[in-house]
């Protein structure tokens, strides 16, 4: 059942209560950007729910950029991670967990490192109130507000009002425990939430439409149908193989299992983010490389997102967060690539 703040209570008070004893990942603002930062606790003077997703993807908490996965030949040094809470997760990042859950949690053999972090992290999501201008979630079948996949969702309304909702057993327990601060949400609050959601949806829909994209497009056919097109070469000309698009992407899950030695000389094995745009990503010994050319690697990125995951999981591995658009050194805009693919397929 949806809740709202009791008279005199603040959302900061609720979040502080909900995240007691947890390491806190929350949004804070620097310049015009919102960043996902890690702190000992919720700091109401710095932390905020944020109007849209932060620069850093949610995956960086559950699938860290570089994570030790045991010293080779020895039992992995492994202690259960401290309970954590992420606050202000937007729906694109939430949707991306379907990919990571599938890869690391739901297919055998399971990844215990991911599962431990996942189980230990309370996810407090939040509706978008002001999308970034690169957001296009509505055009890939998503929406700027969460309806599932969270423990607790917070919908900010005008007048400092909020609607809180639980989406899991863990979330329900947590919300129930703040009965001193929350009461059942009023019909008016629910209506106001509905209005706010529709307005934001429309904003995203309109900015996606300007780029020629909408939720009825079949991107799988567009990508596979344009494999022979020169569009991949044209866009790939601007790619400098920095890997930024992969690293900021909320869904990209590829990694390298690499061996090295620590400063003290012990052997260490790490799981570290990798990029399919890197030349040697698919190279095999002897030098053969099924994706020798950048255009092939760029195509591969789209094939993985819009064809592979459509086939194996029936979803796109793109949630329209627009991060790759902001991050790309070569100024390649995924919306333009998709639009051209739609036109040429």
């Amino acid at each position: 059942m949806a809740k709202q703040l009791k008279q005199g209570c603040t959302i900061n008070g609720v979040i502080e209560f909900l995240t007691t004893g947890c390491r806190v990942y929350a949004l804070s603002q620097t310049d015009s950007n919102y960043h996902l930062t890690s702190d000992e606790k919720w700091e109401s003077d710095r932390h905020m729910l944020g109007p849209h997703r932060p620069v850093e993807p949610l995956k960086s908490i559950l699938f860290p950029p570089r994570q030790g996965v045991g010293r080779l030949l020895e039992d992995a040094p492994h202690s259960s991670p401290k309970p954590a809470a992420v606050i202000g997760v937007k729906n694109c990042d939430l949707a991306s967990l379907k990919i990571h859950d599938y890869v690391f949690r739901d297919t055998e053999p399971k990844d215990p490192y991911y599962i431990d972090l996942r189980n230990n992290t309370l996810i407090i999501s939040c509706d978008c109130s002001r999308p970034c201008d690169v957001c296009f979630c509505t055009a890939v079948g998503d929406q700027p507000f969460p309806e599932s996949g969270f423990d607790i969702n917070i919908s900010p309304l005008p007048n400092n009002q909020y609607v809180l909702e639980s989406g899991s057993e863990k979330g329900k327990k947590a919300l129930d425990s703040c009965s001193d601060l929350l009461e059942e949400a009023s019909q008016d609050a629910m209506k106001a939430r509905d209005t706010a959601r529709k307005a934001v949806y429309k904003t995203v829909e309109e900015q996606a439409a300007v780029k020629g994209l909408d939720g009825n497009k079949n991107y799988q056919n567009a990508v596979t149908g344009s494999i022979e097109s020169h569009l991949w070469e044209r866009f790939a000309e601007d790619c400098v193989e920095c890997g930024a698009c992969n690293f900021v992407c909320c869904t990209c899950h590829c990694f390298l299992l690499a061996d090295g030695r620590s400063a003290t000389g012990t052997s260490e094995r790490v799981k570290q983010w990798d990029s399919c745009l890197y030349k040697n990503f698919a190279r095999v010994a002897g030098g053969a490389n099924p994706r020798k050319y950048r255009a092939e690697r760029l195509y591969n990125r789209f094939d993985k997102k819009f064809n592979f995951f459509k086939k194996v999981l029936n979803i796109y591995a793109c949630d329209g967060c627009g991060r790759c658009i902001e991050a790309c050194t070569g100024k390649i805009d995924i919306r333009d690539v998709l639009k051209e693919a739609l036109d040429e397929a």
Binding site: V103, F104, T107, P109, D111, H253, C254, F255, L256, L257, D274, C276, N280, F281, A282, R283, V284, P290, K304, F308
Partner: peptide
């Protein structure tokens, strides 16, 4: 023979 890293269907290298 594909480039492999994890060997368990997670790292994406051998697709």
């Amino acid at each position: 023979e594909k480039n492999m890293s994890c060997g368990i269907g997670k790292c994406g290298h051998c697709r």
